[in-house]
Design a protein around this nucleic acid. Structure first.
Lengths: 348, 348
DNA sequence: CTGTTAGCGCATTCAT
DNA sequence: ATGAATGCGCTAACAG
């Protein structure tokens, strides 16, 4: 039980193979430093027998490099972030790095704690989607990290790499689609805007599209936004609450723009419970194109935000920076793409 | 840019505060060892000025304890595991441990690599859902870890703690429900059974319930199982394929038992595409009760497998073991609970 | 080819 | 109350 649990070190291997720790290290760390075949096999045999694996802590201390990448996301339960995590992990493993995932649970304090924790753990780089809009203290502590790539947002501090997404353009794109389909009275359902820059941009895009259309057509448009303040980490619960708020609106808008897919699917479900049919009575669009949105009923019209690719790109950028392959700044802004399914009714 | 990035160590702090590293350590590691107020403030000031955080690598090497918990799950994109991860992270943070999440991507080789990686990183404990049914090599390498808790499965090696779930009973529970509702011809849709012990148990429960019912009523039951072999990590794609296979079945079963919710939702969606209505034409049940299953259309009848709680319990057990609070074996088997929604038609 | 040793950052024992 | 020195596991510089 408790006998084999103590990890063997090069000292034990050296003793067993009747040689020095230096020789053991030379053999086991795979250098091409010359070692006699006799000692080499003796070391390999001893290592295998003792189930030796090199202690990464010792190596990190020696090299000043952990091969760990810190990742901070808002929460684990949103399917969008699952995809993103998956992209990050895939690239990390390919290149023999190890991601350390932390969620900030929509708490600035937790985010700050994570940033510090990852610095203590000597991560070689940090990939982060900040939940806060660059307050001074967060920015300062972020700057203490060696390599940073932001995603989901751009930033206020200079020269910081990011893989972002054109939320505003995405908002315009899908709002224009609703307008094209004849909708003139649209509700925007969202979690608190001030918490995330991306949400604000999305809302801006919505307003922009509405204003542009009104300007061009001289038509009178009506928009309203429903925002819940005590919003939950689990998007599904927010959707229920948002749908209830929506149902009280009078006169009732003909279309709903929900700030993300997970919430939109929940909104549709709750509307169904309330006897409001989608898309017959009201049209719904989401944002993200999570995997599930293809399988909702009705399948959700939305905007594609490439989660896996965002994670993969952010990881490639940070690993290239760490390995000195890329000194240039990488500020990437991915373009939105409209995904038309069946949740919007043409009311022209 | 590159000036402030080098982390300050106690050596720099000591130099700046005109004292020794020993004193710096005494102040900053929060011991109650007596230090003069003068030096104390000098050290604190220097540390703050240099944005000092203790290097966790150094501490780990010193203490022989990393405060890291390794976690290996089959994949990141199944919503069930998201919940589970969330439970693990919540407890870890509360007790000041740090989870390191790895996915084995349904690959035994990757699982083995992860087990070794986490040993190299000196995790204090390992929480794992093995994708393989305890082959010798995996079992042996697992045993090299100090503290192990399995979830999602029991195990073949003795005295190993686990937080499992009574899959067989769950399978019986929901199959009985289908039988009660008058279904006599039921299809079992699944990913490869041999890959996961839990799936096998679930299937066993299904068969058991069918056999028991036939025995008791002398009725003739028909069951068939559809299994796809080149199955994808993304459950949603499997569902599509499984639904297509199901549609070809003749005569067509009146009910479908899908091995998990994510796949079941996708199956329902694809059935809809194929013009087969749920539950009018065919009834569908899932397994897990992922968050989304409440919002599918129709809302999915399923069995509750408490993901967040499983993660939280497994974590509590392993942390108690690490801290020596609990020497006893913990072998916990959670009970299933039927969640009736609207995806099953009563055809009696 | 092989072995001895220093040093990465930290906490702690021992001496003062 | 303070500081010098040691060792955790590892690699590499250096000496042989």
């Amino acid at each position: 039980m408790s006998d084999a649990k103590k990890q063997a070190t090069i000292v034990e291997i050296a003793r067993m193979a009747n040689t020095s720790t230096a020789t053991v290290s030379r053999v086991l760390s795979g250098t091409n430093y010359p070692v006699s075949p006799r000692l080499r096999t003796a070391v390999e045999k001893a290592a295998a027998e003792m189930n030796y694996v090199p202690n990464a802590i010792g190596q990190t201390l020696k090299f000043g490099k952990s091969n760990d990448i810190g990742v901070i996301i808002p929460n684990f339960t949103n399917p969008f972030y699952m995809q993103l995590i998956s992209g990050i992990e895939t690239i990390c493993r390919q290149r023999e790095y190890n991601p350390i995932f932390c969620s900030s649970n929509n708490s600035e304090a937790q985010e700050a704690a994570n940033i510090e924790l990852l610095r203590r753990k000597c991560v070689d780089g940090l990939i982060i989607s900040s939940i806060s809009q660059n307050p001074q203290n967060i920015t300062e502590s972020l700057k203490l990290h060696k390599n940073i790539v932001l995603f989901d947002q751009e930033t206020t501090f200079d020269n910081c790499d990011y893989v972002s997404f054109d939320f505003e353009q995405g908002g315009i794109l899908i709002t224009n689609y609703l307008l094209e389909m004849g909708h003139r009275h649209i509700a925007f359902l969202t979690a608190p805007l001030e918490k995330r820059a991306s949400r604000k941009s999305l809302y801006l895009g919505f307003q922009q599209a509405m204003a542009n259309f009104a300007e061009a057509t001289k038509e009178v448009l009506v928009s309203c936004d429903v925002q819940i303040d005590d919003y939950k980490i689990w998007e599904y619960e927010n959707g229920r609450e948002l749908a209830r708020c929506f149902a009280k609106l009078s006169p009732r808008p003909t279309a709903i723009f929900v700030y993300n897919d997970a919430t939109a699917i929940s909104v549709m479900s709750q509307l169904n419970v309330l006897g409001i049919k989608v898309p017959e009575d009201v049209s719904v669009v989401g944002f993200d194109n999570i995997l599930m949105s293809e399988y909702s009923n009705p399948p959700l019209t939305t905007v594609l935000q490439p989660a896996f690719e965002t994670g993969a790109m952010a990881t490639k950028i940070i690993l290239d920076k760490i390995e000195g392959k890329n000194k240039a700044n990488c500020q990437i802004k991915l373009r939105p793409e409209l995904i038309v399914r069946d949740s919007v009714r043409d009311i022209r």
